[in-house]
Write a protein that binds this DNA or RNA. Structure first.
Lengths: 147, 147
DNA sequence: TATTATTAATTGCATTATGCAAGCATTTGA
DNA sequence: TCAAATGCTTGCATAATGCAATTAATAATA
C-alpha cells in the first residue's frame, strides 16, 4: 500500500507541518475568499475565477474545518444557507497571504495584476492591513453568525 | 483529455499565480533547504527528514529552474557535483517561509518544534533575519559558484 | 398541498500526480 | 581499467484531481 505520508509523521518543521495543511493548489484560495470577500457560502466559493471543482471544494472545506481553520454555521432564519468563516487560527494566515502577494508583486509582475482596491494592502504594513480586515470580518460575523 | 489548468490561465491574482509555483507539498521544503542549510546538491536534498522521492525532487528542481527561482552549476573542479542555489527571486521567498513558520509557531504548537537555532529567526524582525541569511548565502556563493 | 428550485454536497469515471524500487549514463578516484 | 558515486530516469502501483451527473434536504411558488 502506498499512501501519502503527511510530513508531520517524519518532521516537526513548521514549514513542513504547515504544508500538510496549506500545501496544495486550492486551500489558500478558499482562505483568500473568506478573508477578503463576502463569499462565505459553498455556491459562492464555486464561482471563484480559478474554477474549483465541487468535490475538491467539499474536501478542502472538510479538512479546513477538521484543522479548525474555518468553522461553519447555518443561517438561523434559512437552514439552506450554510456559512463558512475563519477561526482565529485561520485569520492568522492573512500574514502568509500578504507575504505571498508581496513576493508575487515583486517577482511575477508579468503574470499578475494587483487591483487598485488591493494595492493599499501591499503598501501598508501587514499589521495595519490585518487590523482593518479583522474589523470587517468581526462586523460580518456579528451580523451573520451567532454561536 | 483532462489536464490540470494552471491558475494563471484564468486568474491574475497574486496568490493564485504563486500557488501555480509553490502550491504543493515539496517545493517550499526545497527552498527551505537552499535558504537555511548547506544542502545544495541533489543527494543532500534526497536526505531531508520529510523523505522526498527522487523523481519528485527531479521534477521540482526542473520546474523551479524554469521559473528562475533556482539556478544550478557544476562545481568547476568536479563535474560530478551539481550545485543548486537560489536566485534573487528565490531568496525573496524567505519572507513567505518566515511568515508560515510564525503562523505554525502560534497555531500548530503541538505538532512542531522550533529549535534553539531557529528561534531567533521568529523573534527578530524578518528583514533582520533575511539580511543575515542573504549574507551567508552570498558567502557560500562566492566560495562555490562562479558564473 | 403539490411542485419546483436551490443548496450543499456525493458519486462515477477518466486522467494526472505521487511513492517506491530499480536501472542508467557520466564522472571520478584508485 | 574498473568500481563507486552522482544525478538523474523509468516502470508500476496507488492516490489525487477534474468534470459531469446525481442526490437529499430545505425553501419558495403555484
Amino acid at each position: 500500500m502506498v499512501k501519502r505520508l503527511e510530513h508531520y509523521t517524519s518532521s516537526q518543521c513548521p514549514v513542513a507541518c504547515s504544508l500538510d495543511i496549506l500545501g496544495d493548489h486550492w486551500t489558500l484560495l478558499i482562505i483568500r475568499e473568506l478573508l477578503f470577500t463576502q463569499n462565505h457560502q459553498y455556491r459562492d466559493l464555486l464561482t471563484i475565477p480559478e474554477g474549483i471543482s465541487s468535490n475538491i471544494l467539499s474536501d478542502r472545506l472538510k479538512k479546513l474545518e477538521e484543522q479548525e481553520i474555518i468553522a461553519s454555521a447555518y443561517r438561523p432564519d434559512n437552514k439552506r444557507d450554510k456559512l463558512y468563516y475563519l477561526t482565529e487560527r485561520g485569520k492568522g494566515l492573512i500574514f502568509v497571504i500578504l507575504e505571498i502577494s508581496r513576493w508575487a508583486d515583486q517577482n511575477l509582475g508579468d503574470r499578475i495584476l494587483i487591483s487598485d482596491d488591493c494595492r493599499p494592502m501591499l503598501d501598508q504594513p501587514p499589521k495595519t492591513v490585518a487590523k482593518q480586515i479583522f474589523k470587517q470580518l468581526a462586523e460580518w460575523e456579528a451580523a451573520n453568525v451567532n454561536d
